[in-house]
Design a protein around this nucleic acid. Structure first.
Length: 112
DNA sequence: AACTTGACGGTCA
DNA sequence: ATGACCGCCAAGT
């Protein structure tokens, strides 16, 4: 496990998200500890562009399955196209079958 | 130093 | 089901 910064931990989890799956900011926050709120995860993602590694931030959406951060991808539908290219279906900025495609780190990683 | 904002989430009306 | 409010913690102004 990489235990440098909270930001780095967030990035690690995000990078572990399999293609075609998505998770929520709150799920990541909970996995790292409820002490840090979901807002911090969002704030961490805000700095993901400064990371040397590629962070699949498009696989992280809010708990509603809404592509809230699409505006941060340079385009209006870039995030959607990225997700759709991975097999997901987005309609009206919302991921269909979100619950089914949801990838919870606390469940998938659990004790890894 | 104080106030506002934000890629959120849960609860209450 | 929709909308408003509050809690969360950090950064920018």
């Amino acid at each position: 496990m990489i235990n440098d910064d909270f930001f780095n931990q967030v990035y690690e989890v995000v990078k572990l998200i399999p293609a075609g799956r998505i998770t929520s900011y709150g799920a990541i926050a909970r996995y790292l500890g409820t002490a840090r709120s979901a807002r911090m995860v969002g704030w961490a993602m805000n700095s993901c562009h400064s990371q040397p590694e590629y962070i699949p931030a498009h696989r992280v959406v809010n708990r509603n399955g809404l592509l809230t951060g699409k505006h941060f991808f340079g385009g209006e539908n870039v995030m959607q196209e990225l997700l759709e290219s991975e097999g997901l279906i987005i309609e009206n900025d919302q991921i269909l079958n979100f619950k089914m495609r949801f990838w919870d780190p606390t469940l998938e990683l659990e004790f890894n």
